[in-house]
């Protein structure tokens, strides 16, 4: 893992947390969506906070795809677990939601669990795997 790759994973964490927080703030303004009128969710897309959330999540998506290009899915997800802590901090201090001690304990356990895998290899090597970058496009099975 190079410094550039750690930066990619850091940007997955940052854009994911910020995007979720923007969406949550936007949806608080939009209000609860009636379960019988689920199409109302599309009107939420006009909310400025939701729009900023979408842009943040697009940045998240780009960095997430880049991370998956050099590491396993089961490596990238744990490595970005610090995002749960970010989310709790944003919920507590920006959205002023109540985060109880039990929830904090849950978040700590999640981070501990996912941190276990971060020390292992980032990529599973498959026997007979050829240099992917030289492959043409296609849908190999």
């Amino acid at each position: 893992m190079t410094f550039r790759k750690y930066l990619v994973i850091l940007s997955v964490v940052i854009f994911g947390s910020i995007g979720d927080a923007f969406l949550a703030r936007g949806m608080k303004q939009v209000g609860a969506i009636d379960v019988h009128h689920l199409m109302q969710v599309f009107t939420a897309v006009a909310n400025p906070w939701v729009i900023m959330g979408i842009f943040s999540l697009l940045a998240f998506m780009a960095s997430y795809m880049t991370a998956l290009s050099f590491a396993d899915l089961t490596y990238v997800l744990p490595a970005t677990a610090i995002g749960y802590v970010n989310m709790a901090l944003i919920s507590r201090f920006w959205l002023h939601e109540h985060v109880s001690l039990t929830r904090w304990a849950g978040i700590v356990l999640i981070v501990t669990g996912v941190g276990l895998v971060a020390g292992g290899p980032s990529r599973t090597e498959h026997l007979g795997e050829v240099e992917p970058a030289t492959q043409g496009s296609g849908d190999r099975a």
Binding site: M65, L68, S69, P132, G138
Partner: peptide, 9 residues
């Protein structure tokens, strides 16, 4: 992304 390989490379 596995099929494509490292985007940096």
């Amino acid at each position: 992304m596995r099929r494509i390989g490292d985007l940096g490379d």
